[in-house]
Design a protein around this nucleic acid. Structure first.
Length: 226
DNA sequence: GTCCAGGGCCTAC
DNA sequence: GTAGGCCATGGA
């Protein structure tokens, strides 16, 4: 089987086993962006607590975040860890967003995807994973999200012998998957779910829905090799 | 008590 | 280009 077929077969098995993950769990596109920043290196549970605190304080809008002081925002997002840095990241994004797009998500996402990606990457606090999450889950753009889970996933199942850098992994998926938003959306979410909830809970691979598809049967605990 | 989550920045080499 | 320190919560 070539890479395309393997990726499709794995997706079908994951989707069948776990069902649609329905990402991103947010009510609005702006909430997706805030969540993407707040979930950096912290569990989604803790990030969500912070999002809800902002919402409760009526600070879940670009203009409100821009006007509010650091001292107002930071305590509200304490649960998301690194709250001082994340306060500045949120304010930096909102300043950029209001200044360049007048607070219009439609306007921001209307142009060329790769140039918007470069723009987002130029912002303080927006790295590759966050930029791609924003593009895919808030902008519905065909930008595949890679991360540490994806890297371990490919290693474990013996895929992608090429570059294992972030960009290498991203383009591996984008080259070998049909250009389908639903597929991009669910694939990343399923990899995270599989690595997080299942492989970590059952390190012996008992019940793993895709180990039989692996080129390199490697069922020891893949979290041992970050 | 330890470990680690849906990272990114900065600096040193 | 990459390795390491930093940021500094909350649940298991």
């Amino acid at each position: 089987m070539d890479d395309r077929r393997i990726l499709q077969a794995i997706f079908k098995k994951l989707l069948n086993a776990y069902g649609p993950r329905k990402w991103w769990p947010a009510r609005t596109r702006f909430e997706v962006i805030v969540g993407a920043i707040l979930t950096q290196n912290v569990s989604w549970r803790n990030a969500k607590l912070a999002v809800n605190s902002l919402k409760k304080a009526r600070l879940l809008s670009p203009s409100a975040i821009l006007v509010a002081s650091h001292e107002e925002i930071a305590p509200l997002i304490k649960s998301s860890r690194f709250y001082n840095q994340k306060t500045e990241k949120l304010k930096a994004f909102c300043a950029y967003f209001m200044h360049n797009y007048n607070g219009s998500l439609d306007k921001m996402f209307s142009g060329d995807m790769e140039s918007l990606r470069r723009e987002l990457l130029g912002l303080k606090g927006v790295g590759k994973e966050t930029a791609d999450s924003i593009l895919l889950y808030a902008g519905r753009k065909l930008s595949f999200v890679s991360d540490a889970y994806t890297k371990r996933f490919l290693k474990r199942y013996g895929l992608n012998y090429g570059s294992t850098s972030y960009e290498g992994i991203r383009s591996f998926f984008m080259k070998n998957l049909p250009k389908d938003l639903y597929l991009y959306n669910e694939y990343h979410a399923l990899i995270v779910h599989h690595g997080n909830a299942v492989c970590r809970a059952k390190p012996d691979c008992n019940g793993c829905p895709i180990s039989h598809l692996s080129r390199k049967i490697f069922c020891s605990h893949y979290y041992g090799s970050k």
